[in-house]
């Protein structure tokens, strides 16, 4: 629990005393719950961590989110820090890993138009129908699949996109989504099942809708 000392020293004297402490001494004080020590550390390093993050994520707001997550994570995991380790090395690695996760999540999440195009590539293009009819029905089917995907819960949709359209392995998806591998497997299973049920329902409701839509097949790795 963060706490203020019971008898705070005058502001300037306290600030001067904190400023004279090393990062490691300040973090030792943080481990004892000293809020002013934590604030001093954040004030001392937030700007650099923000610069570190922005070079990776390229977005001011996301960079601030990384700074916030990194410091809060350092606070929550303060018992994991070893006093013989340099505090900034430890902090920067936490921040870099947060920034890397965001970079990957952004790169791994296709834009809607790109998803539709990939659905067409991955599944619909396999349906062979003649001429313009084929094109029309492929377009119709891609709309159906895209609609069914968009109706999925966010986590299922993300897991399916990463698995089928970004070719990530379960372990990689777990890292991107900050979830366990078991959770990812469960999301994929439920997402596939929901998608399959919805597509079958669409097919039943549209007896002339022919392109035989089904959940996307995973693209072979090149």
């Amino acid at each position: 629990m963060l706490s203020q000392p019971n008898t705070p020293a005058p502001q300037t004297a306290a600030a001067a005393a904190l400023a004279a402490l090393s990062d490691e001494d300040l973090f030792q004080a943080c481990r004892a719950g000293d809020e002013r020590a934590f604030r001093a550390l954040v004030t001392r390093h937030a700007e650099f961590v923000r610069r570190l993050a922005i070079n990776v994520v390229r977005d001011e707001q996301e960079a601030e989110d990384v700074v916030q997550e990194a410091f809060v994570s350092a606070w929550r995991n303060r018992e994991a820090w070893r006093p013989e380790a340099k505090f900034t090395t430890w902090l920067y690695r936490i921040a870099m890993n947060k920034a890397i996760d965001r970079y990957r999540a952004r790169r791994a999440t296709p834009q809607p138009a790109e998803v539709i195009a990939r659905i067409q590539d991955a599944e619909i293009s396999a349906v062979e129908l003649p001429g313009q009819l084929a094109a029309l029905e492929r377009q119709e089917a891609s709309t159906v699949i895209a609609g069914a995907m968009e109706a999925l819960p966010e986590t299922q949709r993300t897991a399916l996109r990463l698995f089928y359209f970004e070719d990530l392995e379960v372990a990689e998806i777990a890292k991107v989504m900050l979830a366990s591998e078991q959770s990812v497997r469960s999301l994929l299973k439920r997402g596939r099942q929901t998608l399959k049920t919805r597509l079958q329902k669409q097919k039943t409701l549209r007896p002339h809708g022919s392109p035989g839509v089904s959940p996307p097949a995973r693209r072979p790795r090149s």
Partner: peptide, 23 residues
């Protein structure tokens, strides 16, 4: 080379507040 330092006081407040809440 660094850009002129941004004002991070609001960010610092948010971080300390979140640490306080989540502890």
């Amino acid at each position: 080379a660094r850009d002129p330092a941004a004002d991070i006081s609001a960010l610092v407040d948010r971080i300390v507040e979140q640490a306080r809440r989540g502890d």
